[in-house]
Nucleic acid binder design. Structure first.
Length: 428
RNA sequence: GGAGGGAUGGGUGAGUGGACGAAACCGCCGGUCUUGAAAACCGGUGAGCCGCAGGGCUCCGUGGGUUCAAAUCCCACUCCCUCCGCCA
């Protein structure tokens, strides 16, 4: 949520920044509603004041002149009725204003380039794409042949685009998850979290999925709960309505959850294999920081996510998203994209964002400055560290051999106790 | 699922219709004392809206209601705790 005061004090400036992200955005209705709200508020305040004064007089009049008392009582009844009417209109205007404000996305940071999704800036490329003297196989083919995935039976039990990891596939997936969580906890100073996988409506308003992106969420209407689409939603609500001490900051959490997304729409080739699933696994990193530190924290966060890829020896690149490509709640986003040889392109496995005070404002998450003064909103950052269904796909494709086996990177070979997937003795 | 209890400021917690934005304690800030710190003592210290300001207004889980007037009375809901039942 944007700061209404900031909008009011510089509407043109705010609008210009918003339009870098979406040229169709408009502030007119919000400004008009704000104006109306303030007028109504003044009227209600004034009626209230008169009522408060009358009440005091009435209390002091006890046992006094009955006629005077009677007259005052009649006057007070009118006042109460007027106030009630004004309050009702005020409530309507406030509701409308709130709804419109909740629909506005965050302002892009000045360091974010203008442009469309396709115009993102590749900041650096790490490692080299592996060279194959044979046509690299698709991870789906590799996984099927090696008995790592059973997509057909997943389709039978659940439907298309749900993964079923089996055998060594299940072991590999779990090993990756556990290894990433340990890496962030032990080496990067994160507190590990296993949050609930469902959350209530309020939580998704705070994180920004609602009201605009409800279509993406799986909804359980009997209990009014939603399935977690990313642990960001949960972690952004951990300290909702709290006033933290500055000395506690930064708070850094690493959560593992499955992620559930309806992915309404079609995505062509991405629907094949593990690229775009309704359910995938992700270790999510989240920071609560003071505003002054949040952009330094973004760089650190990207580094923590990158460590996963470099330690696995994967080829990937780092991109800065343009204003039009930013997620709704983000002021600046840096993506990590891993190379999938069979597709001949890079796919996002991590998206690291600074949401500044956008989520903090929605969730009323503040901290008390050490130097004294009023509580201020914290800045929140999130990033995948990283999403594993795609990581799994990249490991298979980048490490395949001519026989269709997978030579595991040393880190994973140690975790699984074997160097090659598909070698003799591999349970099928 | 059944029965009961509860929700008050950064924290604990008192407060059952009119001077209550709210006792007390803790925490935090400032001061006295001290070479310095601690302790002790003194003072200050909730959040937000409107206004240039004086100032006004709101907020005691959420939403409604009663009343001239609600933290306080009534209704509904949410969450937490205890006990019983069921269950991995």
């Amino acid at each position: 949520m944007l700061d209404l005061k900031a909008i009011r004090s510089d509407p043109e400036g705010v609008l210009a920044r918003l339009r870098r992200r979406d040229p169709t955005l408009d502030l007119g209705p919000i400004l008009a509603l704000d104006e109306e709200r303030r007028e109504l508020q003044k009227r209600v305040d004034d009626l209230r004041r008169r009522q408060n004064e009358g009440s005091e007089r009435l209390a002091s009049l006890k046992g006094g002149n009955p006629a005077e008392r009677e007259a005052l009582l009649a006057e007070m009844k009118d006042l109460a009725a007027d106030r009630k009417a004004a309050e009702e209109r005020l409530a309507q205007v406030e509701q409308e204003l709130e709804a419109r404000l909740l629909e506005l996305p965050n302002l892009p940071h000045d360091s974010v380039p203008s442009g469309t999704k396709e115009e993102k800036i590749v900041l650096r490329t790490v490692g080299e794409p592996p060279k194959f003297d044979f046509p690299p196989r698709h991870h789906l083919e590799l996984a099927r042949n090696l008995g790592l995935l059973d997509m057909d039976r997943a389709a039978k039990t659940t439907g298309a685009r749900f993964p079923m990891y089996v055998g060594q596939g299940a072991r590999l997936e779990l090993a990756l998850i556990r290894w990433m969580l340990e890496l962030h906890a032990a080496e990067h100073g994160y507190t590990p979290v296993l949050p609930p996988y469902l959350a209530n409506r309020t939580s998704f308003f705070v994180s920004g999925q609602l009201p605009k992106f409800g279509d993406e969420l799986y909804h359980c209407p009997t209990d009014e709960l939603f399935l977690n689409p990313t642990a960001e939603s949960l972690l952004a609500n951990l300290h909702r309505d709290e006033v933290l001490e500055e000395s506690q900051l930064p708070l850094k959490y690493a959560a593992f959850t499955p992620c559930f997304r309806r992915e309404a729409g079609t995505y062509g080739e991405e629907q094949r294999g593990l690229i775009r699933m309704h359910q995938f696994h992700k270790v999510e990193l989240f920071h609560y920081t003071v505003p002054e530190r949040s952009y330094a924290a973004l760089d650190e966060l990207v580094g923590h996510a990158e460590a996963v890829l470099t330690k696995l020896g994967l080829h990937y690149r780092v991109s800065l998203l343009t204003a039009q490509d930013l997620a709704y709640q983000s002021a600046k986003t840096i993506d990590l994209e891993v190379w999938l040889p069979a597709q001949g392109r890079y796919y996002e496995v991590s998206s690291c964002s600074n949401c500044e005070d956008f989520q903090a404002r929605r969730g009323n998450i503040r901290y008390r400055p050490q130097a004294g003064g009023k509580p201020r909103f914290v800045h929140t950052l999130n990033g995948s560290g990283v999403a594993t269904s795609r990581l799994f796909a990249a490991i298979l494709e980048q490490n395949q051999d001519p026989q269709g086996r997978v030579v595991l990177p040393p880190v994973l070979a140690e975790l699984l106790g074997q160097e090659v997937l598909g070698s003799a003795g591999n349970p099928r």
